[in-house]
């Protein structure tokens, strides 16, 4: 399987030389970087909100809403900053509620459906662990907003990663049923992990400018952390699957359109209204 080419191999701009150093390009790298950060948080926050009132216990309902709230807060900061960087008068709400699928820059992982609680926790573990390692680095971003948001949010996502780890361990090393479901959840999410570590032209340029981080640099750390959780959960890491890529360029799965239809319907139905 590993020899199969990933779906949606980046075409077009291919890293070094793709961007010149004009102010316009700098702005667009910043804009794209902020969109990626903001959309990841927004879409996952939206997914977690779907659980509200339907979780396994009141305590779990509380922690899912709590994580959702953190993520929506991060999205608000990142998307407002994206709007400012773009300089065309759009704010976070305009970006969240008035873009279509092709303009969303989130990874495939966060748009995956909640599934059962195990699937939700698999997604959370794989994403929050990555987000934590990323935000730790982004606290040193040359962009002040990114650095400030990351500094605050790193505490939040550290907690998300811990919470998800605890559940993955509990479910993996719980009953036969929970173990099977946890393994299935991981299996479903596994093919979206490589996208998190993709260094395309925008990411490379953002890292070069000190705005973003070199995600490849913490891949080994990430793998080790996930492996440690799975070991404690007595779960096997799923076999490597063909990576699914494209989210950062607006090429998403089928789920995102439905998520947006729900999330955006009011502002789109009443475009003249404010709320």
């Amino acid at each position: 399987m590993a020899s199969l080419p990933p779906i949606d191999v980046p075409t077009g701009a291919t890293g070094k030389g793709a961007f010149d150093s004009s102010a316009e390009e700098a702005r667009s790298v910043l804009f794209e970087t902020l969109l990626r950060l903001g959309d990841d948080s927004l879409i996952l926050g939206q997914r977690l909100g779907e659980w509200c009132g339907h979780a396994p216990s009141v305590e779990v309902d509380l922690s899912l809403a709590n994580m959702g709230l953190d993520l929506i807060g991060q999205a608000t900061h990142f998307l407002n900053a994206a709007g400012a960087a773009e300089g065309r008068g759009r704010d976070g709400d305009a970006l969240a509620f008035h873009r279509d699928v092709l303009d969303f820059r989130n990874c495939w992982l966060v748009e995956q459906p909640n599934g059962d609680f195990a699937q939700t926790m698999a997604r959370q573990l794989l994403f929050s662990t990555w987000q934590q390692l990323l935000f730790e680095r982004l606290t040193a971003s040359t962009d002040e907003t990114i650095a400030a948001v990351a500094a605050k949010a790193v505490k939040e996502v550290t907690y998300h990663a811990e919470l998800a780890s605890e559940w993955v361990i509990r479910l993996g090393d719980g009953t036969e049923e929970s173990r099977r479901r946890m393994q299935d959840g991981l299996d479903w999410m596994w093919r979206f992990v490589p996208e998190l570590f993709e260094m395309d032209a925008v990411a490379t340029e953002a890292a070069a400018r000190g705005i973003g981080a070199d995600v490849v640099a913490f891949r080994a750390d990430y793998d080790a952390r996930i492996a440690a959780v799975l070991a404690e959960a007595t779960l096997a890491a799923p076999k490597d699957q063909r990576p699914i890529l494209g989210g950062r360029r607006g090429h998403h799965g089928e789920h995102l359109g439905h998520l947006l239809a729900v999330m955006q319907f009011l502002p789109r139905t009443y475009p003249d209204a404010t709320w």
């Binding site: 779907e50 809403a65 709400d93 709320w275």
Partner: peptide, 18 residues
Amino acid sequence: ITRAPSLRRKAILLAKVQ
């Protein structure tokens, strides 16, 4: 929660339900 019409309203509603 999934249909709150702005990011601020969504955050407030999440906080309230929490």
